[in-house]
Design a protein around this nucleic acid. Sequence first.
DNA 1: TCAATCCGTATC
DNA 2: ATACGGATTGAC
Length: 738
Amino acid sequence: MARVAVEVSHAHLDRLFDYLVDERDSAPARPGVRVRVRFSGRLVGGYVLARLGETEHQGRLGYVERVVSPEPVLTAEVADLARAVADRYAGTIADVLRLAVPPRHAKAEGAVAESALAVSAVAESAAAESGAPESGALESAITESVAAESESFRAAESTVPAPSPGGAVGQAWVRYPAGPAFLAAVRDRRPARAVWQALPGEDWPARLADAAAVAARAGRGALIIVPDARDLHRLDVALAAVLDGHPHITLAADLGPAERYRRFLSIRRGTVKIVAGTRAAVFAPVADLDLVAVFDDGDDLLAEPRAPYPHAREVLMMRSAALSCALLVGGFARTAEAQLMLDTGWAHPITAERAGLRAAAPRIEAAGDDFATGATSAAANARLSPAAFAAGRAALDGGSPVLVQVPRRGYLPTVACARCRRQALCRRCRGPLALTAGAGPPSCRWCGVPEAHFRCAACGFGNIRAMTVGSARTAEEFGRAFPGVTVISSAGSKVLATIPQGPAVVVATPGAEPVVEGGYGAALLLDGSAMLARPDLRAAEETLRRWMAAAALVRPAGEGGRVVVGADGSLPTVQALVRWDPGGHAARELAARRELEFPPAVAMASIEGDAPAVLAALDILAVPPDGELLGPVELEEPARAEAPDSAAVKGRTRSGRAGSTGGRGDAIDRAGHGPVGDLDGAGPGAAERSGPRLRALVRAPLSQRKALCAALHAVASSRSARKESGSVRIRVDPADLF
DNA sequence: TCAATCCGTATC
DNA sequence: ATACGGATTGAC
């Protein structure tokens, strides 16, 4: 007999089923293999989780129809993890397994054996180029820290033989007092858990690679998750430089099915134990995991958009807890979630001392609100305050590039009625109208329809004015402000990974800032007020994260590096940037969330969908004793007019979002329905046709998260068992709360 | 009293 | 989807 996890995502079927195994299938039907089974008539896929001598099932058992392949693709660890993640997010194990195990590609199964050595072309070439680093630095750093008994990571007798010489890494971690002790813990396979605030200018891919190398030298595995493909490429290069000899592999979303499965297999077979990837890789079945790490955990790309919407940081936390292995949550800034880990004592901080920070940080100043505020500045050079202009000028004169961060891409991405200032919206889909470079009428960023005869819906006026200035227009303005200087743009569909040294103005959207050898001479952070004013729970945290990511690319103050932020210097978030205090800011954020009873201080879930279905769901929801139901409220539809939005500015592609065409993807994501469905029903009637949609929030103390998730799962089970009509989406810790 | 049929529910 | 059990119905 075999216990099988079937690929059926109905909540009421979210359990294991036993099947008989025919004699001829008995050998290959090992735990972890894919099988096909008959499940109430139809053939479905599944995974063998265990072989059994007996069953608890009362009725008749069916037979495993077919063993798809003898390859055990699902390890016991990942199976347990999938169950835990499903429980944590009130989802089903089938949904998690869909995220965790890539589709089979038969050809790749045969091919893996020979090709496993050539796992990363980048890795090979980069390794060849980098010289052999001197040896001994890490070892001495670790030894010192062990002797010193770091406060954060209790030193233990080393149980692992000293790593062989021939390439040392980790020396740079001594800038963080707790750093070497953490590496020692990784080496000794102790379950150290750390929240790491990288110093400005830090070569963070190299530091993560150091940590992975420690695991590799101990003959063990490491898994590192980063937000996007550009970060992953940097990490790939860094790993290649320090791993000498130990193979590593990257897992990105844009690999084809064959390559994806091939790499997955070489990880599962233990051929490669050092793995780096984007969010889907959190489930990679890395052998002998010693370390799991994530960098820049505030990036919304780390939230999986498919059910049950797990967050990479949370999955890695669960993995490290289940395996008792080291966890590293890093970033220039610090999320409220990371702060909570520190507050509860679950993790320890790895931060630099004040002196180290002073040596590394650029000089940062606020230029006040008058510089860079959308409409009023669009016409003039007012977007450049005297301080900003001076900082830029000085850097350029010194032969260095200047980074200009603009939260919005495009030319003039939002426009408004010139008389009443109401935002100008598309008359067809109510999406935002925008102006593109050059002449021509405004057009809708969602459906693309041009608006040749704008009339304000509120006051009937026929002229528009700019409300926000995008990166393209900003590049134009800076070209005029600094005549003769090269202007480089990195935004939207054309994101640059690096730029050459030398004087240039680099205009980039957040997350798209190119890296430059030696650092930028200055960074000018525009339109900060707009970014801070977004109606989003995480607006402050997210703004600081973006600012710090940009400011971290600037050389230290001692080498002339300057940062000017266009926002009121008295704002706490601006203060946190100026003083480079991500920890203090995160502590205040978390305190505010406690006050408001919002995540991560409480467990929160959203229930949204068609009104009757949501009401019926709420009717049977057993809210935990100290829980609370908020709403339901009607969702405005179509989606509301916007402030700078998070995902669209980066110009990176995530599933279902057209990176280069932008508008279309936005429409689908934000409104929950595509533009096509509404084309024949312009006006208010269009939204009504699908019926009103409701959203409710439920919250509970963290101690009752399990009960909350169980109650939500019960709601989903009841709905799916009765095949109830209408759609309801349940999300635990939803990325967007408003 | 028993078969034919309907309906709800479980799905191994 | 399909299979099954229990309830319901209608013929004898």
